[in-house]
Structures are given as C-alpha cells and as structure tokens.
C-alpha cells in the first residue's frame, strides 16, 4: 500500500494537523517507507489468533462507585491558555 498526497491531506485532517504543500512529497515518501516496513505483517498467518490487548490479559479492575477526586478546577485551569469565570475559552462555535 502506498500513501499519496491526497491520503496525506486526508489523514492530516483526521489528526488535526496542517501539512505544508512543499512538505507533502517528503512526508509521503517517509510514510511509504514506514508502511513497507509494516507490510511484512501481511505475510504472517494469524488465523484464530486473538489480538493481544494486555500482556497478562488483565481485565479492568472496578472500584466502588464513590467520590475519590476533589474539585480542583482552579488548579487545573491555571495551566489553560484562556479561561474566564471558571470556563475554558475557545473561538466562537455558535453564531
């Protein structure tokens, strides 16, 4: 499989990244090289092999449904780029 300029723009959009027109050829070459490395996987027979999500096949541990975190809004908002009255500011989304 190979990644062309259209694919680059499409995945860049999905990943919310902007790629400069002039960087597209180099990037598509880089990604192609990575994909041809990865394509070795296709030759392996993996019929009936369960995909491995956790090395010890551990399952999610549930805890009691009690409050464990305290409200630390001020502390967390102190590192935000823009806040006002306890709210995060973003560009206008509703006209």
């Amino acid at each position: 499989m190979s990644i062309g300029p259209d694919d680059i723009n499409q995945i860049a959009h999905l990943a919310r990244l902007k790629i400069d027109e002039k960087d597209v050829p180099k990037l598509s070459g880089d990604l192609d090289n990575i994909l041809s490395l990865v394509d070795q996987l296709q030759a392996v027979n993996t019929d009936n092999i369960v995909p491995m999500a956790h090395p010890m096949d551990a399952v999610q541990i549930l805890r009691k449904d009690v409050v464990t975190e305290t409200n630390q809004r001020e502390k967390y908002q102190a590192v935000a780029p823009a806040v006002e009255d306890g709210l995060y500011l973003v560009p206008k989304v509703i006209e």
Binding site: I11, A15, L17, L31, Q42, T46, I49
Partner: peptide, 22 residues
C-alpha cells in the same frame, strides 16, 4: 499520521488488529 492512517476506516483490521495478533 501513521497512527491515524492505521486506525482509519478500512485499515483498522489490516494494520492495528493484525499487529496485535502478531
């Protein structure tokens, strides 16, 4: 970008699932 590609519609089984099987 590689990750977004591998996870995107139509490629998930061929890449991510396959890699997790391997």
């Amino acid at each position: 970008l590689i990750g977004a590609y591998a996870l995107s519609a139509g490629y998930y089984d061929a890449y991510y699932n396959k890699a997790q099987q391997v």
